[in-house]
Amino acid sequence: MSERPRLTVLSGPSGVGKSTVVAFMRAQHPEVWLSVSATTRKPRPGERNGVHYHFVDEDQFAKMVANGELLEWAVFAGNHYGTPRKAVLDKLELGEPVLLEIDLQGARQVRESMPEAQLVFLAPPSWEELVRRLTGRGTESQAVIDQRLAAAKVELAAESEFDATLVNTSVEGVAAELLALLNVV
């Protein structure tokens, strides 16, 4: 490894394929540590505490915020989500590559608190392809899709705030580019 790993943030609009790229990359390179977020959301069937999320109640989350224990946090769909700071710093101290998969608001908070972090924007090949991906899921109402598309326009406009942009034309290709940015090749 040519240099010490640093925190890398992957962000981009809903439907661009962040989770798919991360899952593919980690299947090939499990040494890349993906932060586990804390949330006030109730677990879904099959989700395990400490694996998928750290499930906490509102009071615990408020204490984490007040004590500066979160690197970033946001409210989404009435639930709080945040990245525990200590786990990220511990992994970085061990020299392990750390990846956060978070939204634009969280990426901006990380930039404020850790300016040395590398922010990577995952972009769709085109607006039409993003619309196709979001509508093709078939799991959300038109109102939710419209909300996601409106948010995507805001997120796409913020691309210049990022250190690098990867265009998701191929999961394998983008995963390889992300690994190179993480210095894991």
Rank of each mutant, 00 (worst) to 15 (best):
N79E: 15
V56C: 12
M114I: 11
G68C: 12
A66W: 05
V65N: 09
E31M: 10
N49P: 14
E112F: 00
R85I: 05
E116D: 12
L89G: 02
M64N: 05
K86T: 04
Q118V: 09
V98M: 02
P115G: 00
A74W: 04
P84K: 01
V110H: 02
L92E: 01
V110T: 04
P30H: 02
A38E: 13
A117M: 09
A77N: 14
K63A: 12
R48I: 10
L119C: 06
Q60N: 01
T40P: 15
L92Q: 03
G95M: 12
L104R: 01
D59N: 07
W73L: 02
V32C: 09
I102C: 15
R111T: 01
N49Y: 06
S35T: 05
H54T: 00
H29I: 07
Q109T: 00
V98I: 02
V88W: 11
N79W: 09
T40M: 12
E116N: 04
D103F: 01
P84N: 01
L94K: 14
E47F: 09
K86N: 03
K63G: 08
T83F: 08
V88Y: 12
P43M: 11
P115Y: 00
G50T: 13
Q60P: 02
L89V: 07
N67W: 05
E72Y: 10
V36D: 03
Q60Y: 00
E69C: 13
K86F: 04
A87E: 14
G46R: 05
G95T: 03
Q109M: 10
E112L: 08
D59I: 02
